[in-house]
């Protein structure tokens, strides 16, 4: 294992022109991703999904992506042409979206879709691709892969659909997986299974995982490191196990507004937003190191 980060992003900005002037959805985000589970949390509109999309080159015009640098294993991936980006997207960086119902093709069988995705990147013969697809379905713990291969997306459950998505995304053996709210459409019991699968992949393959979520408790338990985003900026970076000792008032506000089973209270504290959070000081103790372990 090398110590160099898999992905390094410096001063990422995503801008959309509007009638009232340009709007920055992401305002100067910098982070490194190693072989780890990196959580990105924030409210809707905080720019967390947009950060993931910008890395994959999925921000459509008129949106504009700018950064000082954005490198994947040392190579710049900033503003590549569509043709170059297509090689990286799905091949070296994959993305799992929130709802499997909208990200699988409804008129193709599951097997065809996985085979197509795999052959696009691996140039393997059909039979080998089929074998690989079966293996991948087994890897995400689908009990009867032969049957599922021939099923259409509407014939499988939500949890199974999400596992199929993960299988498809992982077939070309990517270095990085960006998971955008991968479990929020799933039930708690299925959620654990899907998370276990992703966890194993990070450990066994040395993959980097960017886990975008709004669920603070889940991120605290599942991830190694957490970035907290507010209004397009990272306001705090900390190790996931320290999340409950967060210092930034925004993070603390979010945590305290959650109802807790073990600590009942009459009224929930409501987040009092402050303007200073938008541009004020951020808490990123060791953000300047290039080492993945050093925050």
């Amino acid at each position: 294992m090398t110590d160099a980060p898999l992905l390094s992003v410096r001063d990422l900005r995503v801008t959309f022109p509007t009638r009232q002037g340009s709007f920055q959805a992401v305002r100067g985000v910098s982070f490194d991703l190693g072989r780890e589970r990196l959580g990105v949390v924030g409210e809707s509109g905080s720019g967390k999904s947009m950060t993931g999309r910008a890395i994959l080159g999925l921000v459509r015009p008129p949106g504009q992506v700018a950064a000082t640098s954005m490198t994947l294993e040392g190579e710049s991936i900033l503003n590549l042409s569509d043709r170059q980006m297509r090689k990286i997207r799905g091949g070296r960086i994959s993305m799992v979206m929130q709802d499997p119902k909208f990200s699988l093709n409804p008129v193709m069988t599951v097997g065809q879709q996985i085979i197509e995705a795999y052959r696009l990147h691996a140039k393997a013969p059909r039979a080998a691709a089929r074998q690989k697809a079966l293996e991948m379905l087994q890897a995400v713990q689908i009990r009867d892969p032969e049957r599922v291969m021939n099923a259409y997306p509407h014939e499988v459950s939500g949890g199974m659909g999400q596992r199929i998505m993960i299988a498809m995304m992982l077939a070309p053996d990517p270095r990085i997986l960006i998971a955008d709210e991968p479990t929020s459409a799933l039930d708690v019991s299925v959620r654990t299974e899907v998370l276990n699968i992703m966890d194993r992949l990070v450990r066994d393959r040395g993959m980097g995982l960017i886990f975008v979520s709004h669920d603070l408790n889940l991120v605290a338990r599942f991830c190694d490191r957490v970035l907290i985003m507010y209004a397009g900026r990272i306001v705090e970076t900390l190790a996931a196990k320290d999340l409950h000792n967060a210092q930034h008032p925004y993070t603390r506000g979010l945590l305290s507004s959650l109802p807790r089973l073990e600590a009942p209270m009459e009224r929930l504290p409501v987040l009092q937003r402050q303007d200073s959070w938008r541009d004020g000081e951020t808490l990123m103790p060791h953000a300047d190191t290039d080492l993945p372990g050093g925050l």
Partner: peptide, 27 residues
Amino acid sequence: VDALRSGAGEQEYTRHLITASGGYQPA
């Protein structure tokens, strides 16, 4: 709700649901 808080479900399924909602437990 008091029974829910103390995690005292009579049925297996209830207890399972309470544990699962507590968050992610690594396998």
